[in-house]
Design a protein around this nucleic acid. Sequence first.
DNA 1: GGGCTAAGTAAGCAATGTCAACATCAGGGA
DNA 2: TCCCTGATGTTGACATTGCTTACTTAGCCC
Lengths: 191, 191
Amino acid sequence: MSTSGKSGYHHGDLRAALLSTAMEMLEGGEPFSLRAVARQAGVSPTAPYRHFRDRDALESALAVEGFRDLLADLGGGRDLPASLPDLAEFAVAYVAFALRRPALFRVMFGKPCDDAGDERVKAADALHRLLADALHRLFPDADASALAVAGWGLAHGLACLYLDGKLQAASGEEVADRVRDAFLAIASVGS
Amino acid sequence: MSTSGKSGYHHGDLRAALLSTAMEMLEGGEPFSLRAVARQAGVSPTAPYRHFRDRDALESALAVEGFRDLLADLGGGRDLPASLPDLAEFAVAYVAFALRRPALFRVMFGKPCDDAGDERVKAADALHRLLADALHRLFPDADASALAVAGWGLAHGLACLYLDGKLQAASGEEVADRVRDAFLAIASVGS
DNA sequence: GGGCTAAGTAAGCAATGTCAACATCAGGGA
DNA sequence: TCCCTGATGTTGACATTGCTTACTTAGCCC
């Protein structure tokens, strides 16, 4: 009863509890604050500071979870993409993630993220690597790095534009279609 | 002395003054707040509320200025792109804008922007149209809309990734090179 | 049992967005 | 000329937030 008990003065595993309630609030659309998270967790307003240096540290931890989930979404269920349409599905999944968990996506990106040894950077690098591998396997003679950057950029840009309402679509289906179209359109420009 | 006088109780043209000092602070890297802007403009903390419904309205006005400038950057100096490399320069200019005025770029994007009749949306549409026109002229038989979405998405995604430090480069030159490479790489995938 | 220390609390500060009530001024109709 | 009205600014206040400093509690090891 040392790590999971939650009675009395000591909470048991406040850090995990804070992370999960913060994530819930984020997904629930509530504009979360450190204090609100603490309140929700039934703990004093300053308790989180024992586990996170500041608000940014909490967000960073959430972002890391987010990157793990996104990576799982992209790499987990499916095989490595073996064709251009497969790659398009990559982009579709990326955008779908952003639209399904908008607040998390904003926490993952949308911040300077200047910490040199930031875990977020490592997580993002993992994403980059996954993509570059897939692309290198698909187009061995092309510049895999440039392609990976392009693919990531395209998926990310579409995700942001749809998320911010700069591009609009009626349904998730339509978004997926448009993303597919865009991906295939640009990839067939070289005639 | 009705619109530019700034002595006494009435300011003359507070709205414009607020916008310009807010823009200066934004470009100066200061994390601006409504109160700080008012302070800088030498006016009481709540004076801005006579001209902007809330903080978001001020940001929205700044964003509109930003879109105008970005559009000028993209369309103003240069001819409509007549080749693929020209298009790549479009993307380069887009990313350069984002890196040159990061805070403004974040204000322009990076927010839900759910207001239906929002001027920001119209400004963004103008951008979309410019791009679609250019692409339609370049590739008359392709799906111009899908291409425009793809091009915008690619440029925007790269801008965001560089801005957030998810992609890194030593200099502006290097960023430009990478953007060009990415653009040309993805456009030549169809072998 | 007696400390040592990690984990949590209490109290407080400066800042922010926002609201309600009040002050000031400019311009038009009497 | 005078006063009234509406736009523009100001004062004062409230709730909330991030964060710091100092204090308290309780589990663990000897």
